[in-house]
């Protein structure tokens, strides 16, 4: 219990009422055309700047600006910036990934970079290109030094760079939340480590890679031991699912793998992972004093933006509502249970 957050929680509670519930998203989804769909947002927190949206890219920018305001609000309300900044730091790690992809010769658009970030994206790009990263904060400088080593020794292995960045980021987040004794956040990052490891396990299984390959890409410190994945790697997917029978992830992994086998796509699995995370942060709705409601709201907003992007981009591209609907994540609030 942290009484310092009384004002912040009051503000967040008033803001939660304006989050989009599933019926609202569905009404936008079922609009006849994109103009009607956008009009459906005119009575929501997304109305500001909505008139400027003419094409898909405009809407992406619109959502990015909206999320910048949300991160700004959380930074304003927090009494523990070292904890809430972890969510902004994720954008820095994403920007490092993009900058290295560019360095490896991949085509990179400006909009691939995310804002807000702890370090300006131009500084990240310059540091990655020149190798002069010692002006960056120690965590990012150390990270870039390690990634530079991988880049030079692994023949520009982008996948290894990605997983190493995920590992450094999540391990850092876990360490910071443990030091701050914030159990809610610690649990959130432990779940993220597990879900990342499950994702890596399944992807490498699909690619038919060896056990040593997996060993280098698993993140330590999660609720599921690394050995659990390594032991299951030689066996079938069914035996992996069985090994999770008494774990919380059993249902989502089972359903996700079934869907993957049928469709050949990980998109339903990703949806189930996001729903699992969201259901975890929903616990914050019952906490009256502390940082938890701020984190819950932030994660809820991230999911909401993901849902809106799915709906509106789907509308721009003329996808059938049924196809879009399958991809929608759960909403943080429902009309019955705010």
């Amino acid at each position: 219990m942290d009484n310092r957050y009384a004002y912040a929680v009051g503000k967040i509670r008033a803001k939660e009422v304006r989050l989009l519930d599933l019926p609202k998203l569905l009404s936008i989804l079922e609009a006849e055309n994109i103009e009607e769909a956008l009009k459906g947002l005119s009575d929501t927190d997304y109305r500001e700047g909505l008139a400027l949206v003419k094409q898909e890219e405009d809407f992406d920018l619109h959502l990015s600006l909206h999320m910048e305001r949300v991160y700004g609000l959380i930074s304003e309300l927090t009494h523990d910036p070292q904890l809430t900044d972890l969510f902004i730091l994720r954008n820095d790690f994403h920007n490092i990934k993009v900058a290295f992809k560019k360095k490896c010769g991949a085509s990179v658009e400006e909009e691939y970079y995310l804002a807000p970030s702890v370090v300006n994206r131009e500084e990240i790009v310059e540091a990655v290109e020149t190798g002069n990263f010692f002006r960056l904060p120690p965590l990012l400088a150390g990270t870039l030094q390690e990634i530079e080593g991988i880049y030079n020794s692994s023949k520009k292995n982008i996948q290894l760079i990605d997983t190493t960045l995920d590992e450094i980021y999540l391990s850092h987040c876990l360490q910071v939340s443990q030091q701050a004794k914030c159990e809610f956040l610690e649990r959130l990052f432990l779940i993220q480590i597990d879900l990342t490891n499950i994702r890596t396990f399944l992807r490498l299984k699909e690619m038919d890679k060896g056990r040593d390959f997996l060993k280098n890409r698993l993140i330590s410190g999660g609720l599921l031991e690394r050995d659990h994945f390594l032991k299951s790697f030689a066996g079938s997917l069914e035996s992996f699912v069985d090994s999770l029978r008494f774990k919380d992830y059993y249902g989502i992994v089972k359903d996700g793998i079934e869907s993957w086998k049928k469709s050949g796509s990980f998109s339903f699995l990703e949806k189930l992972f996001d729903d699992y995370l969201l259901n975890f942060v929903k616990k914050a709705k019952y906490i009256s004093f502390g940082i938890e409601p701020l984190i819950g709201y932030l994660v809820a907003k991230e999911m909401e933006v993901k849902n809106l992007r799915t709906v509106i981009v789907g509308k721009f591209n003329g996808l059938f509502p049924e196809i879009i609907k399958e991809k929608l994540r759960e909403a943080y609030i429902s009309s019955r249970n705010l």
Partner: peptide
């Protein structure tokens, strides 16, 4: 003080309450 802070947080978004 506690209740007042919480109420001010709400009022910053919804003054009509």
């Amino acid at each position: 003080g506690l209740a007042g802070q919480a109420a001010n947080g709400v009022l910053s978004e919804s003054p009509e309450k």
